[in-house]
């Protein structure tokens, strides 16, 4: 079962690439030239992101090495034990809806400390991949039409985030 899942997971990228290139060839596009345009834009995206990453990694690294994260994790342990969520992922769960770059730094920090290929590493990865920066998304889409009355859209969005986090834990536990 796990091997089958891993196999299909590993097929996702190669299959996507081949389908897209196939379409490019079928419609007689200059695939390599087009690829280069996109790849160059990718480099720009990463370079623009680097200052943010440096600032955020610094803040999150300080939070951990000062012992504050351990302090918070210990405080939350009774609650997380009750809902069967490893307390180590709680800093990630708390920051994920608020900031994309901060949650990325926390995820890297967690995987560095507990190992990428451990249960905690897997849970952090799945949470990062399956949830979004909810607050930011809501802010962008309400402000672009100048709406202030959001009728409580934050609530179902956060309910979905919590569901995503709990499901991530369950799936990783089943697969590990």
């Amino acid at each position: 079962m796990i091997n089958i899942l891993n196999y299909f997971s590993s097929l996702a990228i190669p299959l996507t690439i081949i389908v897209i290139i196939f379409y490019g060839l079928k419609e007689k596009k200059k695939t390599f030239d087009v690829f280069l345009v996109g790849a160059k834009e990718g480099i720009e995206i990463v370079l623009k992101m680097l200052p943010t990453l440096i600032g955020i990694f610094l803040a999150i690294g300080l939070l951990r090495s000062s012992g504050i994260i351990d302090f918070i994790v210990n405080l939350l342990t009774p609650i997380t034990n009750f809902i069967k969520v490893p307390s180590e992922i709680m800093p990630l769960a708390l920051l994920r809806p608020i900031s994309g770059s901060a949650s990325m730094a926390v995820a890297v920090d967690i995987m560095n400390n507990y190992g990428v290929d451990t249960l905690i590493g897997a849970i952090s990865s799945v949470i990062m991949g399956s949830t979004e920066t909810t607050f930011y998304t809501i802010a962008i889409y309400t402000s672009c039409v100048g709406i202030k009355k959001t009728r409580g859209i934050l609530l179902p969005a956060l309910v979905a985030d919590i569901a995503g986090i709990l499901i991530s834990v369950v799936i990783c536990r089943i697969l590990s």
Binding site: S10, A12, G129, S130, P156, A163, I167, I171, C172
Partner: peptide, 20 residues
């Protein structure tokens, strides 16, 4: 195995979306 999380991510995001 960096890509091993792809299918778990799909399952988790679909469940989260349906709940939402």
């Amino acid at each position: 195995n960096p890509t091993s999380i792809i299918i778990p991510v799909w399952i988790s995001s679909i469940v989260a979306a349906v709940v939402g």
